[in-house]
Design a protein around this nucleic acid. Structure first.
Length: 315
DNA sequence: AAGGGGTACAACCGCGTTACG
DNA sequence: TCGTAACGCGGTTGTACCCCT
């Protein structure tokens, strides 16, 4: 019968945190570090549930948080990332050091949605409203439907080109973002050559699930340079570089059409792309960081599935 | 000055995923 | 391999604050 409550609700405070509670939490984490959220409240002398402590710390008390207004540049990054990833706020936050998923989510709902609407763009689909006159030429529409991808063979290439790529570890928050180029290419003309594939997009669906790039433009090839920082944490000397030959290693595109959303995260798709491009397993999971050739479970699964999919398409 | 509506954001809730015994 | 506990995420709610009438 369902899951037991995460804490004894009868003995926990709810609602706004007091200064004293904040201080207790800060002091405790300063001494003991993050983690063990379930046992933390008791150990710290807080009448709060562990989840509440975690939220309070992550969203408000953490010292590396960047408070204050979002810059115009951050706005644009959020819009581009939302276009790519949908409501994957934690992934988006991972690209904006000092910002939390909750903060970005709220900011999206209160500011950016309106901004996009005023530009004539649907904030969910990133398409022009009412067939309007929005200036975007390429729409990236993550979707949950991947059925019959081959019938609508517009091609997608995820092109990771970068040299040194410091990753923002979700806990560590890297300070120096490398400027890697994350290029999305659509190409109608060379499906066989590139092995890039795509899927169908349903208008009504909220953007989520695996990345799918749908080319609405009439041009045969459209590039979207996102200037994203998709990188790896320390040590820099051991960081794998995505070779320039990655441009010809295009089977990354398989992820766009073939990966079931329940099986893969965006990060997992990225690891497969990176592995394909470099020929080496590379863990891009920013929650775990780089492990000198090892893959976390998530990325390992992604890679295995990637190989199977490729076998299927080639065989 | 009061109050009503709108906005912003902190916090909560439920569920999926992961870790571990 | 399975069951359970814990974690983390995204959606939703609650409330403080601001502005307008």
């Amino acid at each position: 019968m369902g899951r037991s409550p995460c804490c004894e609700k009868a003995h926990t405070n709810k609602g706004a945190w007091t200064k004293e509670e904040d201080q207790r939490l800060i002091n405790y984490i300063r001494v003991h570090g993050e983690g063990c959220w379930r046992s933390l409240p008791k150990a710290a002398g807080l009448l709060r549930c562990g989840k509440s402590c975690r939220l309070r710390w992550i969203n408000y008390l953490r010292p590396d948080l960047k408070r204050g207004n979002f810059t115009e540049e951050e706005d644009e990054i959020i819009i581009k990332l939302h276009n790519l990833l949908g409501n994957k706020w934690s992934l988006i936050a991972g690209r904006l050091p000092g910002r939390t998923d909750n903060e970005i989510k709220n900011y999206w709902n209160t500011h950016i949605k309106r901004k996009l609407i005023s530009r004539g763009i649907d904030p969910q689909t990133h398409r022009p409203l009412n067939g309007g006159t929005a200036t975007t030429t390429t729409t990236v529409t993550p979707t949950t439907t991947n059925t019959d991808a081959s019938k609508t063979a517009k091609n997608i290439c995820l092109d990771f080109r970068s040299s040194a790529l410091p990753l923002d570890n979700k806990n560590g928050f890297m300070n120096d973002h490398g400027s890697s180029k994350f290029k999305l290419t659509t190409d109608h003309s060379s499906a066989e050559d590139t092995k890039c594939s795509s899927g169908t997009t349903e208008e009504s669906q909220a953007p989520q699930g695996p990345l799918l790039l749908e080319d609405q433009a009439t041009t045969p090839s459209v590039m979207l340079d996102l200037e994203l920082s998709i990188g790896l944490p320390q040590p820099k000397s051991s960081i794998s570089s995505f070779s320039s030959s990655a441009e010809s290693k295009v089977s990354q595109g398989f992820w766009a059409a073939a990966a079931p959303p329940q099986q893969l995260t965006q990060g997992a798709a990225a690891v497969a792309a990176a592995a394909t491009a470099t020929g080496k397993p590379v863990c891009l999971c920013w929650q775990l960081g780089y492990k000198s050739g090892q893959l976390c479970r998530n990325c390992d699964m992604a890679l295995q599935i990637s190989l199977k999919i490729e076998d299927r398409f080639q065989g």
